[in-house]
Structure formats: C-alpha cells, structure tokens
C-alpha cells in the first residue's frame, strides 16, 4: 500500500484563510488538487486570497465571510456552488481571542469568542451537511487549540469555545458517519502566527521551555495534518481530536 494524498475534484471551504494556519491549510489543500474557497472578513483580505491562489496555480477563489452572519454564509455558499460546486471539505479555522481574567471579563468578550469560534462551527457545518450527505462523502475539520484541553489563564472564553468544538465534532461524527462523512478536530499548540506574535517575550520563553521540540510550530505543520484528514487516506479517522503541539501537551 502506498500513501498518496490527492484532493482532485473536491471542493473545500476554508474559513479565515487570509493568514496564519488558515492560509497554510487553504494553500496545501489547493496544492493537492482541491478547488478552494478561502474566506476572509474583509474585501481586501478576500482579494489577497484570490491573488495568492492565482499566483500558486490553485483553483478557487477568495470570498468575504462573516462567520457570525447567516446571510453572509448563505451568500458565500451560493457563490461557491454556482462557481465551483458544493463544498464537501469544510475547514472551520476562523477564530478570535479576547483574553481577560474571568473576574474582569465583559459579556461582550465572552459572547464574541463563543459566537465566532463555536457557534460559527455549528452554523457552517449545518449549512454544508446537506450536500455532503447527498454526496455520501464529506470532511469537517475544526481547528481548535491545545488551550481547549490544558487551559490557560486569561482564556476561559477561548478555552471553552475550543473544548466545545471538540465535543461538537464527536457528536456530529456519530450522527453522520453512516453517510461517509468524518468530523475531526485538529488542536494546534503554539504556532508561529500573528496570534502568537503578540505574546510578550517573557511568556514566549516560558512557553518554549515547556515544548519538548523546543520551537514553535509552523502553520504548514498543521496544514499537513488537515490535508491527511481531508483525504481518502484519513478516511477512517472520525470524532478525534489530533494534538499537534511539539509534545507540549500529551493527551
């Protein structure tokens, strides 16, 4: 048996694809032959994604999506179906942080993080499932975080949203497995992106000392795990959370 990963003729929807992990995921899926709709929150972000795809010879396009809006989501899916076909690979990557100690946390900070990181996963999965069940093939891959498993002070909202995503994935995996659809979660540790660049130097050093591999991960090292799960090679993995963190947290 040889390992080949091809995503030819598959249409993928990747949220938050303008930078960081989402960008690496979109490019890798596209490089493996998938047609990719990569979403960003702004028009300029979407245009950059389209330009990047064109430069790399990736089929697909950027699109503007506010994952907290049902109307915005319907618009993007309509566009995707018309131009490329219904997405059968959904990568829920878009996420935000609004860190605060719980005793200082504002309701808006809690709600914004839950809405974007957790409720949006519900919304997008529901919207894409119809076509996946018809196709009798589908992949839903959520990008969560090691913080959802190990916790982190100041991130109770973020950790709750990410742990929620993993539980959601397990339940949905049980619901739709009979239709050839797998649902998984990839939990990155500390990856070299804009989200972790804002960490103060001291905190960064402290983190590195806890990572056996002694370095931050690269976005491509998350993307390759997503690509495996998206492919037929990963077809028997479902309901699982895969930790990719350089050994920082071993579940």
């Amino acid at each position: 048996m040889t390992l080949t990963i091809s995503l030819n003729d598959r249409v993928a929807l990747v949220t938050g694809a303008s930078r960081g992990i989402g960008s690496a995921v979109a490019d890798m899926l596209g490089g493996l032959g998938a047609t990719v709709i990569g979403t960003a929150t702004s028009e300029s972000g979407a245009e950059k994604i389209s330009a990047r795809f064109a430069e790399k010879g990736i089929k697909g396009s950027g699109a503007v999506l506010d994952v907290t809006s049902v109307e915005s989501l319907s618009g993007v899916l309509e566009f995707a179906k018309k131009e490329f076909g219904a997405p059968v690979i959904l990568v829920n990557n878009a996420g935000i942080t609004k860190d605060n100690l719980l005793m200082r946390m504002k309701d808006e900070e809690w709600e914004a993080v839950i809405d974007t990181n957790l409720t949006a996963v519900y919304r997008l999965s529901k919207a894409c499932l119809r076509d996946m069940t018809k196709a009798r093939w589908g992949r839903i891959i959520n990008i969560s975080s090691v913080v959802g498993s190990m916790g982190n002070p100041g991130q109770s909202n973020y950790a709750a949203s990410k742990a929620g995503v993993a539980g959601f994935a397990r339940s949905l995996a049980a619901e739709v497995g009979s239709r050839g659809i797998t649902v998984n979660t990839v939990a990155p540790g500390f990856i070299d992106t804009d989200m972790t660049k804002v960490l103060p130097e001291g905190q960064r050093e402290a983190l590195l000392s806890r990572i056996p591999l002694g370095r931050l991960g690269q976005p491509e090292e998350i993307a390759s795990v997503v690509a495996f799960l998206a492919s037929d090679a990963g077809g028997y993995v479902s309901g699982e959370t895969i930790h990719v963190n350089g050994g920082m947290y071993m579940a």
């Binding site: 069940t133 018809k134 009979s178």
Partner: peptide, 11 residues
Amino acid sequence: ADSLDTVELVM
C-alpha cells in the same frame, strides 16, 4: 428508516 434517513427523505 433511522432518524437521519427521515431527514434526508424530507430533503
């Protein structure tokens, strides 16, 4: 039919 079948049938 199971519950998912009935949802698909309606679809």
